[in-house]
Design a protein around this nucleic acid. Sequence first.
DNA 1: CGGGTAATTGACCCGGGTCAACAGCAGTGG
DNA 2: CCACTGCTGTTGACCCGGGTCAATTACCCG
Lengths: 236, 236
Amino acid sequence: MLGRMGRGTIREVSPRRDIIHEGVDPGAVRLILDGWACRYKSLPDGRRQTLAFFIPGDLCDAHVYLLRKMDHSIGAITPLRYAEIGPAQMDAMTARYPRLSHAIYWNELVSASIQREWILNMGQRNAHEHLAHLMVELFHRLRAVELTKGDTCPFPLTQNDLADATGMTGVHVNRVMLDLRRDGLIELERRELRIPDLERLEKLALFNPAYLHLDHEGDQIDRARQFNDRLVFVNR
Amino acid sequence: MLGRMGRGTIREVSPRRDIIHEGVDPGAVRLILDGWACRYKSLPDGRRQTLAFFIPGDLCDAHVYLLRKMDHSIGAITPLRYAEIGPAQMDAMTARYPRLSHAIYWNELVSASIQREWILNMGQRNAHEHLAHLMVELFHRLRAVELTKGDTCPFPLTQNDLADATGMTGVHVNRVMLDLRRDGLIELERRELRIPDLERLEKLALFNPAYLHLDHEGDQIDRARQFNDRLVFVNR
DNA sequence: CGGGTAATTGACCCGGGTCAACAGCAGTGG
DNA sequence: CCACTGCTGTTGACCCGGGTCAATTACCCG
């Protein structure tokens, strides 16, 4: 979706390195070009919770011009390539491509919607449902940016990454993943995930794709244009 | 002009009634004037998760013009009075008060930040920390809109409401609340909460107020308040 | 006083956590 | 080419926070 807005300072970081962390002023929007990253928070005693995964095409922290202090960190999961877009550049780009602001605001809203589904995941879904749901969600998102091949997609997350994201233990993630494999719901090797029967996995996960708002995006954006022109980036 | 905008937009609902629900096009932004509400989602089998609490001054679903289908429901907790602001009206208001858009966007971002903290709550905090954190959060938010009196604030949530919000059982909420009372951390009766030693409760909750973005962004808040004042004025 | 909702309590259970060991493998330096 | 290191995945034994079920007991309000 946002993949074409390329220009900006391109940066690369190695896996498991933070690209920005809690408390600092981020100063720029970041667009993931290649690789996966995550947003996370930690407690003073070391407990750590992943809040979101970023895949290519995702924009992190479009809100940086308003909330000047990061209330969370962002770290690379795989080798990562991303574009850093500073305020001046962003102004220039939104001036030149007015629909860009719509796309950005859209992105922000969808992220919030996904966050809400995650709360539901943690509060109500059990371990099997939760992990199944997470994989289905990522599969859909990857498909939307054409990173799937048939029923397979890249899946660089370790079981520990999954544990951080679900609030479970690495050990328990392991057991649940074994169950899912034994039941033929997923195949996972060499960081590639295959979902032989997506519908079946979705059913187990109680998955309802509405929250991803993948449908008719352009349409919505058009309808909202007038409102949105006023709303987004009026001030910085 | 102002007067005309205001007419017919105030609505009231009884406790435990939905004001909008999942799947419909909300068609308007809603501003809570009086009482508490909550945002929630449920699974087909009836499990239910509260995603956010709304208190007076909160705006629900400022994004409605973009995401046309609600991916969650909103229900009243107490008797509720709110203003419904349709698209035309909103356009008129943002045209007249440009800073309004800023305030709305700010509100949206802070909600998202609170959602992130809730994910951390569910994934990493145990029952005592989680409930303590929730109460501290609400206390701070209520204080920001001047609904506290010293160390007390209104607290209309039942233990079941707390259970829905934390993903715990009503029974367990009860036990934890008893612990907190026994330890002198809270006093709660007649739907009034007293926090005799806020700092102590915050410490237990591992509370860090940064995510509420209440600090030294005074001008943002002022703008938001100005907005609310106007709105209330407009609609009287 | 009656009916309904909210809070409280007890007995028992289970999903998932904890701890600890070990296996597989990739990278790295010698 | 091998030994070493470190990360990831796997497994077993055991434990505990919080869930379940089922009564009661306060309250509230008409």
